[in-house]
């Protein structure tokens, strides 16, 4: 979870979304609603992979 935040804060969006994909694939305290509500994830909301995660959720 922390690594996902570090990556998105550093602007490494693909790496951040790799982490998101992993977190969503296992039991974890994350959800697409969580990432949508969090302002830190604002820069990737229009990223195609983020949109895809959203569509799959």
């Amino acid at each position: 979870m922390v690594m996902a935040y570090i990556q998105v804060l550093c602007g490494n969006y693909d790496a951040a979304l790799d982490e998101v994909g992993l977190l969503l694939s296992i039991p974890s305290q994350t959800s697409m609603d969580w990432f949508l509500a969090d302002p830190i994830w604002g820069p990737v909301r229009n990223h195609p992979r983020f949109v895809q995660f959203l569509a799959e959720s």
């Binding site: 922390v2 690594m3 935040y5 570090i6 804060l9 602007g11």
Partner: peptide, 19 residues
């Protein structure tokens, strides 16, 4: 440390600590 470095914009150190 990784989070603090990321907020400080010290990206390499942030990734290193996170890894």
């Amino acid at each position: 440390l990784g989070l603090a470095m990321a907020f400080l914009g010290r990206k390499e150190e942030a990734i290193q600590a996170g890894q």
